[in-house]
Simulated assay, not measured.
Amino acid sequence: MRALIAAATGLALALALVLTVSALGSPSGRTSPEPLLTTVPAHP
């Protein structure tokens, strides 16, 4: 019975966390104006 209560408590906490994060919304991210400096490997 204790395991069932612990599982229900964990599920409730996880659901509360998901609802909190979704209520806050996603952060306004910006992309870097500078391109990534990568090199293309030479083809054999």
Rank of each mutant, 00 (worst) to 15 (best):
L36H: 08
P33M: 03
S32Y: 06
V21F: 06
L36D: 13
L13Y: 05
P27L: 02
T39E: 14
M1V: 15
P33K: 09
A7I: 08
T38S: 10
S28E: 00
S22M: 06
L37M: 10
A23T: 01
P35F: 08
L19D: 01
A42F: 13
T9E: 09
P27G: 04
P44Q: 12
M1Y: 14
T38M: 09
L24Q: 01
A16N: 07
V18A: 11
T39F: 13
T31H: 06
S22A: 11
R2L: 15
E34V: 14
L13I: 03
P33Y: 05
S26I: 00
A42M: 12
G25K: 00
S26K: 05
A16E: 02
L15D: 04
H43S: 12
A14M: 00
A12P: 03
E34W: 15
T20K: 09
T9K: 10
L4C: 13
I5P: 05
G29I: 02
P27F: 05
A8R: 12
S32T: 09
L13W: 02
R2T: 15
E34G: 11
A12R: 01
E34Y: 14
A16I: 07
T20H: 02
R30I: 00
A12F: 09
L36Y: 07
R30G: 06
T9C: 09
T20Y: 05
A7Q: 05
T31Y: 13
A14E: 03
S22E: 02
P41T: 07
L36N: 10
A23G: 09
R30V: 05
E34P: 01
R30K: 05
M1Q: 14
A12C: 09
T39W: 12
A16T: 07
A12H: 01
A16L: 08
G29C: 03
S32V: 02
E34R: 15
A12S: 12
E34D: 15
V18R: 07
P27R: 06
A6R: 10
S22R: 13
A3Q: 15
V21M: 04
P41H: 01
A14C: 02
P35T: 09
S22G: 02
T20S: 14
T9V: 08
T20Q: 01
T31M: 12
P44A: 09
A16D: 02
V21Y: 06
L24W: 02
P35V: 07
L19C: 04
T31V: 15
P41N: 03
V40S: 09
G10Q: 03
V40R: 13
L24K: 04
L15W: 09
G10I: 04
L15N: 07
L19A: 08
V21A: 06
L37Q: 13
T20N: 04
P44E: 10
P44Y: 08
A16M: 12
R2N: 15
S28L: 08
A16Q: 06
M1H: 15
L24E: 04
G10Y: 00
H43Y: 13
L13H: 00
S28K: 06
R2G: 15
A6V: 11
I5N: 12
L37C: 04
G29A: 07
P33E: 12
S28P: 06
